[in-house]
Design a protein around this nucleic acid. Structure first.
Lengths: 319, 319
DNA sequence: ATTTGCATGGAACAAATGATCGGTAGCAGA
DNA sequence: TCTGCTACCGATCATTTGTTCCATGCAAAT
């Protein structure tokens, strides 16, 4: 089983003092319009340092840009998506510049959306995937102080949570301590019945908000890259009608979960159970995901969508 | 009666198309880190135009920079204020750089706070003063699309609402169409009983959120500058124990409303009635306001405070 | 004691940004 | 029609910003 390597740069861990310094610099810079030199004088550090502080603040998600327009997003597309698919909310980010990684952009938008919905002491359920991972990266600096807890919907999440290093001692995160997929149905069943696993699975269903990624059925799918599936298996599922997956479960173009052997190997909340969660945020973008998102929305497997502009247009074109 | 002149630059009025363009540019610039040149190419406009779009977005409050730390503000001072005065919330902005106008900074922070509390179709009650005025400036672009309505707590507000030009035809704003202070108690009483005035006064009390400024008793008080009081009167009130005013009513160091003749000339909701509003946000900063804020907080005339760092320290020093 | 790693500060440079200026197009009124 | 008047637009230029390379200092590890 291939290990999950830290995707890009490790999420910076910020201590309270640094957060204070960044906040201060950010205020002076963005709200007061001072130059970095002036700020450096006021803070008693070098101009370079101010530049680095601001950079770190932006990278870590501590400094967030919010655009205030209809429902705090923009683009008429959002309204169309909401109307067309009966969603509770949607967020559409502008088209990706050129060859930039989509997941990071979507993740940022999703983080912003989640933070607007979350209140202190909330519980956030999280699924599996690139988009989920990057979303957490941007939210990480906020959690500790807001008393927001995490709970995983699937196994295999611990890998990329661990890398943030934020959830060490206090344990704000309740993770299913298993892989996403195990080698036999019997083992999967045993794990699901394991008290702590069961406890986490139950807890996940009490969350008010869930955030999941959407997997496509491509040879380069994240599931394949991480070694949970082989390209051959994906091929097979496709012939059975699969257009995408959530939480490791594959579904067809109408969002119906397929009856596949592999599902019996998965340690995760089922999409059926997940309907108990009032708000399920799906984040995904890219031409290869269009079919998967369509199925997801047709099957009402999620009611909030975060995507980008071209993907939104594609979705609307195919009703 | 001196007219209210447009304080600084008139609030820019943005049409839907421009908002779209600004949103898009802002995303590419702040979230994707593209240069203005690249954005210009993508949008098909000149680089300088992008620069101006971004500038306009920041000025108008459409682009908001949010700093995520404890309860989306920063500074341990906030917690101390909340604890010391039994507040529902507080926001402390860093010390003002040098001789910059405090009201604008506080206004921006207040706008950010209000936008986080408001949901579409809410009603926001507003008082009188510089801070209130600048706060509205930053919120103006957001209102029309969010279906947020305004209602004034006092007379004399229409002057600076009118300047934004935003509330022309649709009438999202319900303003008391009188001056703050009139020349005789009889006239004030007649106006208060006037059906429409009465209607607005009643409506104001149904708001969930109110935003007020805090007046100091200085020769340079805003009330004096705008001609509603003479410096001599202020002098007199001070000798009677006044430390500040809200909505045109003066109170003493314990927040008790004084029994002054001038109060009978005021057309406004009374501080007593305002207690019906669950969240009252007071925004003020500066050494000359410290006594006024202290009285306000002691008398529980507001339960949310927006101020700056030196003021917060002063407040805490004097318990 | 030495080494190693890391955060910081400084200098210098290239890139990006914002401000100023003049030009042009619309537009109201004489 | 002409004359201001305003708003927008683009070019130029000074300032600001980010980056690179190197030196320094501190602290943990050897």
């Amino acid at each position: 089983m291939s290990q999950v390597t830290a995707p890009q740069d490790g999420a910076a861990v910020l201590d309270a003092e640094e957060i204070e310094q960044i906040s201060r610099a950010a205020w002076y810079y963005y709200n007061d319009g001072l130059t970095q030199n002036q700020i450096a004088d006021m803070l008693g550090v070098s101009r370079i340092k101010v530049s680095r502080l601001l950079e770190k603040g932006r990278q870590s998600g501590l400094i967030e840009l919010r655009i205030n327009s209809p429902h705090q997003g923009s683009m008429a597309l959002q309204e169309e998506l909401i109307a067309a698919f009966g969603l509770a909310d949607a967020r559409v980010v502008p088209a990706a510049p050129v060859g930039t990684a989509g997941a990071a952009r979507i993740g940022r938008a999703a983080a912003s959306l989640l933070m607007q919905h979350l209140v202190p002491n909330d519980l956030l359920a999280i699924g599996w995937g690139d988009a989920t991972s990057t979303t957490l990266r941007y939210m990480a600096p906020v959690f500790p102080q807001s008393n927001i807890s995490l709970v995983s919907l699937t196994g295999g999440v611990s890998a990329y949570i661990g890398t943030t290093g934020l959830y060490g001692p206090q344990g704000f995160a309740h993770l299913i301590p298993t892989p996403l997929r195990v080698s036999s149905p019997e083992l999967a069943e045993m794990l699901r019945l394991e008290p702590y696993v069961r406890h986490v699975l139950d807890m996940a269903l009490t969350a008010k908000l869930a955030m999941i990624g959407v997997g496509s059925v491509a040879r380069s799918a994240t599931l394949v890259r991480y070694g949970y599936c082989t390209a051959t298996e994906i091929e097979l599922f496709t012939r059975r009608g699969a257009v995408g997956d959530i939480l490791g479960y594959f579904y067809d173009r109408d969002g119906q979960i397929l009856d596949l052997e592999v599902h019996r190997h998965v340690v995760a909340v089922t999409p059926q159970d997940m309907r108990q969660i009032p708000s399920v945020v799906a984040a995904a973008a890219g031409p290869e995901k269009v079919e998967a998102i369509l199925g997801l929305l047709r099957g009402r497997l999620a009611n909030i969508l975060v995507t980008d502009e071209p993907t939104a247009r594609d979705l609307l074109r195919r009703i």
